[in-house]
Computed example of a mutant assay.
Amino acid sequence: MIYLDAAGTTPVRREVLEAMWPYLTGDFGNPSSHHELGERARAGLEAARADVARVLGCRPGEVTFTSGGTEADNLAVKGIALARRAADPRRTRIAVSAVEHPAVLESARSLARLHGFVVDVVPVDGTGRVSPEALAAVVGPDTAVASVMYANNEVGTIQPIAELAAVAHAAKVPFHTDAVQAAGVLPLDVRDLGVDALSISGHKLGAPKGVGALYVAGRVSIEPLVDGGGQERGARSGTENVAGAVALATALRLAEGERPTAAPRLAELRRGFVQRVLELVPEALLTGDDVHRLPGSASFCFPRVSGESILLELERRGIICSSGSACAAGSSDPSHVLLALGIDPETAQTAVRFTLPATVTAGDLDEAARALEGAYAAVTGIARR
């Protein structure tokens, strides 16, 4: 089996398992308890928070651990919008890009449905990029928060986050970015990005599922979504997942250390793979931005062909990939991301996404490209040789 669905999830790294093991065994205490076991757990939690903060270039107190990227996005969009409107009743609008992850889009829609906010959707170009001008046309004195993802989970397009954050700040609007797919392969220093909030998720980095983190600048107020004992400095009540936090911090630290060499390597392998696919299957349509693209992301549509049939044929040949977002569970609708790029609904339903894990080799990708050629021939009856 060749696994090419790293955007869906990644295997847990051995170093991560070893780092979290003590907090699943001997140091199992509740970090809010004032005894030795509790203090050891608290020390592990705060060390993890400091590790995450070092990668993000922020203060440890600006990092909140969550159950994953989805909760982090919800807390950012809803929490900032509600706090902003409470401080200034004019702030009744939310700006989100047309290609956001459902965690952001549904958070915005929930605020509209339950709290009367108005959602402004910022359009993208044919590659999935948001221009500063497009965002500037939407944000204003009535905008509570703006959210544009760092890199898209379906087509891999990278946004000009620093420029977009500057546009939001010129309108005095807090700016959040979903960096779940960017973590480990793109720079995450929030000072350089200029963002007020940033979400990450552990299982995209080699940590277990069920843990994430949200950076929120200390100057930005946020309304908690979960009330209780006031853990995480009141931002997210509930007994903390210490082992998960340690796992996330370890995975993030390792990925950041490897990024200077790993990211260019993945980009080179991806470019070769894309070229090979387009040679073997000229009908394939590469989606997303060819230049501003995640190092390990290659996504295609196959007009007038069943994408699901190609996926099944690929799996039969030992290639594991996906049709796009792993988070649109049970949906048969065309991808909203591809529709936003101007791709027609019929073609959008033929998407196949390959996302490369750090361990992938050129040989793996050559085999995958040849398997795709065979899968396409099997589905269409077009044999080239």
Rank of each mutant, 00 (worst) to 15 (best):
residue 227 D to Y: 15
residue 228 G to T: 06
residue 228 G to C: 02
residue 228 G to S: 12
residue 228 G to N: 09
residue 228 G to F: 10
residue 229 G to S: 13
residue 229 G to Y: 03
residue 230 G to R: 10
residue 233 R to E: 10
residue 234 G to N: 09
residue 235 A to N: 14
residue 235 A to F: 15
residue 236 R to L: 14
residue 236 R to Y: 14
residue 236 R to C: 13
residue 237 S to I: 14
residue 237 S to Y: 12
residue 238 G to R: 06
residue 238 G to F: 10
residue 238 G to P: 01
residue 239 T to I: 13
residue 239 T to L: 08
residue 240 E to K: 12
residue 240 E to C: 08
residue 240 E to S: 14
residue 241 N to H: 15
residue 241 N to V: 05
residue 241 N to C: 02
residue 242 V to H: 08
residue 243 A to P: 05
residue 243 A to M: 01
residue 244 G to T: 13
residue 245 A to C: 14
residue 245 A to S: 14
residue 246 V to T: 02
residue 246 V to M: 02
residue 246 V to A: 01
residue 247 A to C: 05
residue 247 A to M: 01
residue 247 A to D: 07
residue 248 L to N: 04
residue 249 A to V: 03
residue 252 L to I: 09
residue 253 R to I: 02
residue 254 L to G: 02
residue 255 A to H: 04
residue 256 E to V: 03
residue 257 G to Q: 12
residue 260 P to K: 07
residue 261 T to P: 00
residue 261 T to A: 15
residue 263 A to M: 07
residue 265 R to M: 03
residue 269 L to H: 13
residue 269 L to M: 11
residue 270 R to T: 10
residue 270 R to I: 00
residue 271 R to L: 07
residue 271 R to Q: 11
residue 272 G to Y: 08
residue 276 R to T: 06
residue 279 E to Q: 10
residue 279 E to T: 12
residue 279 E to P: 03
residue 282 P to S: 01
residue 284 A to D: 04
residue 285 L to C: 08
residue 286 L to Y: 06
residue 288 G to Y: 11
residue 288 G to W: 05
residue 289 D to Y: 04
residue 290 D to M: 04
residue 290 D to F: 02
residue 290 D to A: 13
residue 290 D to G: 06
residue 291 V to P: 00
residue 291 V to A: 13
residue 292 H to W: 11
residue 293 R to Q: 05
residue 293 R to H: 08
residue 294 L to D: 00
residue 296 G to R: 05
residue 296 G to I: 02
residue 296 G to V: 09
residue 297 S to N: 15
residue 297 S to Q: 13
residue 298 A to D: 08
residue 298 A to P: 09
residue 299 S to E: 10
residue 304 R to H: 15
residue 304 R to S: 14
residue 306 S to N: 07
residue 306 S to C: 10
residue 306 S to G: 08
residue 306 S to K: 06
residue 307 G to P: 09
residue 310 I to D: 11
residue 310 I to M: 12
residue 314 L to C: 08
residue 315 E to D: 14
residue 316 R to H: 14
residue 316 R to E: 15
residue 317 R to W: 08
residue 317 R to V: 05
residue 317 R to K: 12
residue 318 G to E: 13
residue 318 G to W: 04
residue 319 I to K: 05
residue 320 I to P: 00
residue 320 I to F: 12
residue 321 C to A: 12
residue 324 G to F: 15
residue 324 G to A: 15
